[in-house]
Design a protein around this nucleic acid. Structure first.
Length: 584
RNA sequence: GGUCCUGUAGUGUAGUGGUUAACAUGCCAGUCUGUCACACUGGAGAUCGCGGGUUCGAGUCCCGUCAGGACCGCCA
C-alpha cells in the first residue's frame, strides 16, 4: 500500500518518509539529474534522482506509463513549480520497484493532446487515464452519491427492476433478447422502469427510486446513447406540487453539494402553451430573449403573395429580432441562416434590416404600415435584423426556435454558468398525427388527465391537459414526469383513444390494468436524464465524455467490438426444433 | 433512411495532378546537475482507410465501399 496519494504532500511533510505508487507520467533526464512525474488518480508528485543516487540508472530506464512503487523522503525543492499542488516538494527516492512495464501508448495521457475520438474509444481504458475524464467520472460518482444521500434521507427505497422484461408497444424501438427456453419468444430491455415503479406503488412502498439503466434502439446524437441512465423516482399519496417540490429539492441538493451552486428561489414555471408560443419549443433556453413574435394579424391583408397564401391556408407568419443583426449579418451570413431554417422544414427565410431606413428581402413587398407594425411588434430598433418564417405553425416554431438557439450560440449570447431551471407544466395529453391518422400521448399513456377534463377527454382528446411536468435547463430537457392514472377505467379510456383494441390492451397491459383494480394509491413521479445532468455540471457537450464505456454514433463499442457475430452453435439453441428431432 | 464534414508515420496535422510525401509530438541513440512542454545533436518510423476508374502520371480528380463525427428523420 502507499502512504500518500500524489497530490497530498506539501512543505509540512518535509523529511517524512513516504511510499508512493503510480504511473510514470513524464521523465526529464538532465544527465546527472533525473526527474520523474509520478501520476495517480489524485495528481502528480515529482521524484528526484541526484547524481549520487544509485537508482539514477533505473530511473533513466523508466518509460511513460510504467507502474512503479517508490519509497523515499520528502524534501523542499530548490526550484518550485507553482502550477502543481505538490510543486513545493519532491521525493528523494531510495527504493524503486517496477510493478509493470508499458508499451508505447497509442494516445498521449494528457488533457490537451486529444487523439481522434476513434482512437480514444478503441483504447478507452487509456483515454480514461486522462485527468479530464478522471474528473468527469468522479463528478458522476459524486452526483450519484448526492442523489442516494438525498433520496435516502427523504425516505425513498432503492429498487432494482428487471432488465429482461416484456416488449411494449408505443414509444421507442426496443432492444430484444431471444429466449432459449421459449423458442420464438423475446424479452425486451426496458426503455424505462415505468410500469414496475408504478406497480411498486400498488405494492405500497410509497417512495421508490432507482438509478436505472434504460435502453432505446434509436439513432444516436451527441447527447443520446443506446443505453443511458435515469434517476427514476415515484411517490404515492401525493399531488403534482409535491412531486415537483421534491424533485426541485433533489436537483438543488445535487447542485449545492456537487457544484457548490446554491439555489434559494423556486424554479420558474412556464406553461407548455407559453413555451411553444414564445420559444417555439417545449424545452426553451431562457437565458436570453429573442422571443418569437406572431405577425399573422399584422399581415392578414398584405399584398405580398408568399405571406398571403400561407395565411389563407391556415399557416402562420412569425419573427424573431436579432439585436444589432443588421450589420452583423451579411447577405452570405443570412443565406447560412436560411440553410439552418430549411433543416427544420422552412421553405425560406425572409428578413428585414432596420438600418437607416428599411431594407431586406421582403422590404419592397410590404407597406410602410406593415413594416412599422412589424418593427413595433418585434421591438426592433435601429440596427436590428428581423427574421421571418411563413409556414404551418409547427414548421414556423421549429425553424425559428432553432434559429434562435443557433444565433445565440454563434453570437455568444449564452452564459454557461447560468442555470435557468424551468418547469414546463400544463401539457396537452394527446396530439394527432396526420400521417398515421391516430392520436399519440405527448408524455406516455400512463399519464393522468387533469380532473376538469377526465370526463371529456375521450370525446375531445386534443383539448385535454395532463398532470405532466418537464424540468428544462439551458435548452435541454433534464427530466420529465407526471401524475399517473390510478383507476382502471381512465387507463382503458386512454388506451382506447390511442387506438388499442380491447384485446391488445389485455394482451400487452392486462397485468397492469388488473393491478389498478386492487386499491392503487394516487401516485406520480419523475425521471431525470442522469448522463445529461452530468454533462450539464461537467460542462461538456458530448455524452460520451460522461460515460465510462460509451458507444459510437453507429451504436458500436470500438473497444470490445460489440455488436459482433456469434458462433453458430450459440444460435441453434434459439431455433425451433428441427423436423428430425420432432420425428424422434 | 437522408444531408454534410473527416480518414496521410505510434499520435495529431500539412500537402497546386508531376523528383525522395512535409511539420510537430511521441519513439530510439547520444550530450547535459534544477527540470517541470527541459534543452541540444543524430536516427528509425507511411500499403496516403479499402476497391475500382480517369490520366503518360493520382495522397490529390471521379465512382463505390468501410470507419469516425455533426445534423435531419427517429427518440411516448
Amino acid at each position: 500500500m502507499y502512504t500518500h496519494h500524489n497530490n497530498a504532500l506539501t512543505l509540512n511533510d518535509v523529511n517524512t518518509r513516504v511510499r508512493l505508487k503510480g504511473f510514470v507520467a513524464k521523465r526529464r533526464d538532465l544527465g546527472n539529474l533525473v526527474f520523474i512525474d509520478l501520476r495517480d488518480r489524485e495528481g502528480i508528485t515529482q521524484l528526484a534522482f541526484d547524481a549520487d543516487n544509485d537508482l539514477k540508472s533505473i530511473a533513466q530506464a523508466l518509460k511513460n506509463e510504467y507502474v512503479i512503487d517508490i519509497e523515499g523522503t520528502v524534501r523542499e525543492r530548490t526550484s518550485k513549480n507553482p502550477n502543481l499542488t505538490t510543486g513545493d516538494i519532491e521525493i528523494d527516492v531510495d527504493k524503486v520497484v517496477v510493478l509493470n512495464t508499458a508499451a508505447q501508448p497509442p494516445l498521449l495521457i494528457q488533457d490537451d493532446t486529444d487523439a481522434l475520438e476513434e482512437t480514444r474509444l478503441k483504447y478507452r481504458y487509456l483515454d480514461l487515464r486522462r485527468p479530464v475524464l478522471q474528473k468527469l467520472m468522479r463528478l458522476r460518482h459524486q452526483m450519484m452519491r448526492a442523489t442516494r444521500a438525498f433520496l435516502d434521507e427523504e425516505g425513498f427505497i432503492e429498487f432494482d427492476t428487471p432488465v429482461l422484461t416484456a416488449s411494449t408497444p408505443e414509444g421507442a424501438r426496443d432492444y430484444i433478447v431471444p429466449s432459449r427456453i421459449h423458442k420464438g419468444e423475446y424479452y425486451a430491455l426496458p426503455q424505462s422502469p415505468q410500469l414496475f415503479k408504478q406497480l411498486l406503488m400498488v405494492s405500497g412502498f410509497e417512495k421508490y427510486y432507482q438509478i436505472a439503466k434504460c435502453f432505446r434502439d434509436e439513432d444516436l446524437r451527441s447527447d443520446r446513447q443506446p443505453e443511458f441512465t435515469q434517476i427514476d423516482l415515484e411517490m404515492s399519496f401525493v399531488d403534482q406540487q409535491t412531486v415537483i417540490q421534491t424533485s426541485e429539492r433533489l436537483v438543488k441538493h445535487i447542485m449545492q453539494t456537487v457544484a457548490g451552486k446554491p439555489f434559494d428561489a423556486a424554479f420558474k414555471r412556464m406553461t407548455y402553451h407559453d413555451a411553444m408560443r414564445d420559444y417555439g419549443t417545449d424545452k426553451p433556453d431562457t437565458r436570453f430573449g429573442m422571443l418569437l413574435k406572431d405577425l399573422s394579424d399584422i399581415l392578414k391583408k398584405t399584398d405580398f403573395n408568399v405571406f398571403k397564401s400561407v395565411l389563407e391556408t391556415g399557416g402562420s407568419v412569425q419573427a424573431i429580432a436579432v439585436k444589432g443583426g443588421a450589420s452583423a449579418y451579411s447577405r452570405k451570413a443570412i443565406d447560412a441562416l436560411t440553410e439552418e431554417a430549411k433543416k427544420h422544414g422552412a421553405k425560406g427565410l425572409a428578413f428585414l434590416k432596420f438600418q437607416k431606413g428599411i431594407s431586406g428581402s421582403v422590404a419592397k413587398f410590404l407597406s410602410a404600415e406593415e413594416t412599422d407594425a412589424i418593427q413595433s411588434r418585434t421591438d426592433a430598433t435601429e440596427g436590428d435584423l428581423v427574421l421571418i418564417v411563413a409556414d404551418t405553425p409547427a414548421v414556423v416554431r421549429k425553424s425559428l426556435g432553432h434559429l434562435r438557439n443557433h444565433i445565440a450560440k454563434t453570437q455568444n449570447l449564452i452564459d454557461d454558468d447560468v442555470y435557468d431551471f424551468t418547469w414546463i407544466v400544463d401539457w396537452p395529453m394527446f396530439e394527432y398525427d396526420e400521417e398515421t391518422k391516430r392520436y399519440y400521448t405527448l408524455h406516455h399513456p400512463f399519464t393522468r388527465v387533469i380532473d376538469q377534463h377526465k370526463s371529456s377527454f375521450v370525446d375531445k382528446p386534443l383539448d385535454a391537459l395532463a398532470y405532466c411536468y418537464d424540468l428544462v435547463v439551458q435548452g435541454q430537457e433534464l427530466g420529465g414526469g407526471s401524475m399517473r392514472i390510478h383507476e382502471q377505467t381512465m387507463q382503458q379510456s386512454v388506451f382506447s383513444v390511442l387506438g388499442l383494441t380491447e384485446a391488445e390492451q389485455r394482451r400487452r397491459f392486462g397485468f397492469f390494468t388488473d393491478a389498478l383494480t386492487y386499491g392503487t394509491p394516487p401516485h406520480g413521479g419523475i425521471a431525470f436524464g442522469f448522463d445529461r445532468f452530468v454533462m450539464l455540471l461537467g460542462k461538456t457537450k458530448n455524452i460520451r465524455d460522461v460515460i465510462a464505456f460509451p458507444k459510437t454514433a453507429s451504436a458500436q463499442c470500438l473497444m470490445t467490438g460489440a455488436p459482433s457475430s456469434i458462433d453458430a452453435d450459440q444460435l441453434t439453441v434459439f431455433k425451433p426444433d428441427t423436423p428430425d428431432k420432432t420425428d424422434v
